[in-house]
Design a protein around this nucleic acid. Sequence first.
DNA 1: ACCCAGGGTCATA
DNA 2: TATGACCATGGG
Length: 222
Amino acid sequence: MINLSSQASRRKLRSVFDDLSRHHGPQYWWPGETPFEIMVGAVLTQNTAWSNVEKAIGNLVARNKLDAAAIVAARKDHLAGWLRPSGYFNVKAARLKNFCRWYLEAGGYEVLQQVETGALRQALLGVNGVGKETADDILLYAFDRPVFVIDAYTRRLFARLGLFSGDEDYDAMRLAIEQVLGPDVPLFNEYHALIVRHAREICRVRPRCSACVLQPRCPASQ
DNA sequence: ACCCAGGGTCATA
DNA sequence: TATGACCATGGG
């Protein structure tokens, strides 16, 4: 990893954000009406296109099952059926049940909002099916905690900008960026949203534009 | 037909 | 600690 404490790296991280922000405008993330819906979406979007997640959440809403107690009470095969469009539906049915069981036993949103960020992160990581990125999505977007989410796009972008080698440990990369840019919840929120937006709506339409550095096999970055 | 998606777990070495 | 197999639908 390069020296992120240098002024050059700091300015680079800022200027990339400014460019993305000017280009795309505000993103209003995370899509979802409530913190609980954001948490459900974070689990369902694991390695999955958001358009498919929306269908699964739509199924839950249509059956009045977008609720932790209802999900815990539901039969697993029924839940899997509702989650089918989001892929990995058997795995995700189990994961979502695990998460909801923990969420209820922990006391729900108001209680969890009182928990210190590091402890809350550890608790989330203790849920089978919640890994680091999912936990950080939940911390940042459902609990408004100053956590920088590291996903595959973020690794590619920062690696190809020369800020990282790309294969750093997740938390080493996260902490380094958090030190340089934050703590700043609105900035972390918008930065991650812009990176995903940039990959989703530009690179596919114009595969040779500079944004294609976010794609797995970018001809302009190898 | 192929590639990819807003990952994570588990078994194995 | 570090790979590899596995999970699975839907859009480009």
